[in-house]
Design a protein around this nucleic acid. Structure first.
Lengths: 205, 205, 205, 205
DNA sequence: GATGAATGAGCGTTCATTCAT
DNA sequence: AATGAATGAACGCTCATTCAT
């Protein structure tokens, strides 16, 4: 049993989340989990491999979580409402995830690795929407445009939580505030699905 | 004449945008603009001071741009439609801006400086919306929630443009694609303002 | 085996002695002992830590040496005569010691560390003298005044040895000249102990 | 009128005294006297030239002071008593002098310059003593030995004033304490001149 | 005399990584 | 699986000094 590997992963996850990949040092990671510095390279080959493992772990968890939310027999509207909740919960419970991904996705050498992880999730989403609503295949309200928007709405609440905290004086990640945000996003879903369904009826005719 | 200062700013802007603040080195910045390494510290005191100057320059430009878009006698709806266009153009013409800000806003030591810059812009936005639509003072469709959402929709298109490129096979930042995104966002504005105005009429009664 | 640590200490000792702490560079220390520059920081954390270790080593040696000289059953006069010899031998055999200490004791950031090392030695000396000759507790011939004087007589011969060399044309640190200096200091001891014992007899009456 | 030159000298004197030649930077010297950094090189050629000027100024002052004390028709004993007072006053009024000299005399590249300054003063002293007391030409109580001793007694009180302050809890450079030290040194003169005069009478016979 | 900009060398320090044990 | 020592490259930064104006 290699509890060491997990301890390193945990520490790296924390430090990457707090200061970013480049500012994080193997020395501090090793110190945080009380492990010899050289062991990081023994277990993960190098610093990049460590980040890859951290990301892999997250996307594995995320894929499972989202799949669970998307499956089922309810209407797409219902499943999307559930998805938003699930995703917000995931971001809330794994705050380092968004911190790491937002940073590395904004350019730099790890951008592609993240793209690779997200592509199948994104494609699953567009396929699902387009399957139900053919009118979303193209145009200004295409599934792609909608997904990017929803993705942005969800993620940015976490990315700029410090700004929001400063502006509102309250912790945006507390249970209350997070619930309000989830209500907002569900409302957005309702509004947009209404719009799409109306557009769909015109599209068919 | 202090063209040197500007040359350094330009180079730093580029490198910060490409690899991030931490991965950027003063040595490479100096090389890129053919300037002595020590001059960076002469003109900006610090690597941190250099980032601060880069950010200041952007937020100065942005504040001017947004103010121009928000002023005028048209309805708020009109002004918001114009604002979205203006903001998207700004992000398109200053692509490093989003790269730098997204990274540094996701935690780390420069988060607060960014918050300080964005706070007044954000407050201006909420004040404007709440002034016209009192029903947006609280609740799931509050001005704050709406602003975070719009901000996220706009920004994320740029943040994940590489993912979109990979998925669609086309450059999301080309004129065509960018116009489509702007149309999407304007449509979102129309939809939401409709919703708010209806909600407003009920709120008054 | 940590011979590396000692090699670094030796080289640092030499260079600090020759050019002073500030003018000494870690790079040259590393070169002198054929050791990787980074190892200095691995073993001593800091350039400051390196100086601290150099000083500690000296004061440890010195404390042992002086304790050996002061112990015994002979009269204080005898022990002081022996002490002077021992101290002069120590300074002669560890010439960098005086060079380093004189420089750093003359103000600057390491002054306090040196004071801390010397304080117990100094206090031991005064206690010993005052114990034997109560009349030296205060006044112009107090133990403190006498110790400072003797300390100065001994040290300055080394500090200004280059001046003396220039004036006399001979090496003041050669065996002959050093012996003469030791005879001078012993004679000073004899003279002053005579004075103190006479003063003591008047003091008692 | 070049008040600038003097302002620089003053600032350099202070900083050299506080942190030493190597740790002092031209930038801080320039800042302290509100003068452009480049002007230091205009007025003093380089940093070494600045130290040379600082030292020259001191030794000029010192030579005048000592000459005044040594001249006169009184006995050598009287003149030496006066000299000790004068010298201690000089050290007290020019505390940076001793700080700078002790540091640079302890090895390093400025040692020789200091030796050159001190040699004539030292030779004057030995000539004077040997002229009056021929028995001090050689031996353990030679004029040279005596001068080194007195020099050391005087100087070391200032060099180790911080240690003394820590040990006694009082400022050794206050008027009271300084007077006591001067009394001690005068007493030492009396004692030693007595010894020499006795030795002299035996030497003649 | 005085200044702001510029320079090249070098500073102490830290990095990810390797290696022998 | 684990460790302490070692490595070479590079880091941000500061230095004394120069130069054109």
């Amino acid at each position: 049993m290699s509890g060491t590997r997990d301890k390193i992963l945990e520490a790296a996850d924390d430090l990457f989340g707090q200061v970013g990949y480049d500012a994080a040092t193997t020395r501090e990671i090793a110190e945080r989990c009380q492990v010899n510095k050289a062991l990081i390279h023994y277990h993960f080959k190098n610093k990049e491999g460590l980040l890859a493992s951290v990301l892999d772990r997250y996307y594995e968890k995320l894929a499972g979580t989202l799949q669970g939310a998307l499956s089922g027999q309810e209407s797409l509207r219902e499943r999307m409402l559930r998805l938003v909740d699930t995703y917000m919960d995931f971001l809330s419970e794994n705050r380092n995830f968004n911190r790491i991904v937002q940073r590395e996705a904004s350019g730099g050498k790890h951008m592609d690795r993240i793209s690779e992880h997200m592509a199948p999730l994104f494609q699953l989403g567009t396929a699902l929407i387009q399957g139900t609503y053919p009118s979303t295949r193209t145009g200004e309200m295409s599934a792609t445009q909608l997904l990017v928007s929803f993705f942005g709405m969800a993620i940015n609440y976490f990315t700029y939580n410090r700004l929001l905290e400063q502006l509102t004086g309250a912790d945006p990640l507390s249970g209350d505030k997070l619930d309000m945000r989830k209500r907002h996003l569900r409302r957005m879903i309702e509004i947009l699905v209404d719009v799409i369904e109306e557009q769909e009826s015109q599209h068919v005719s």
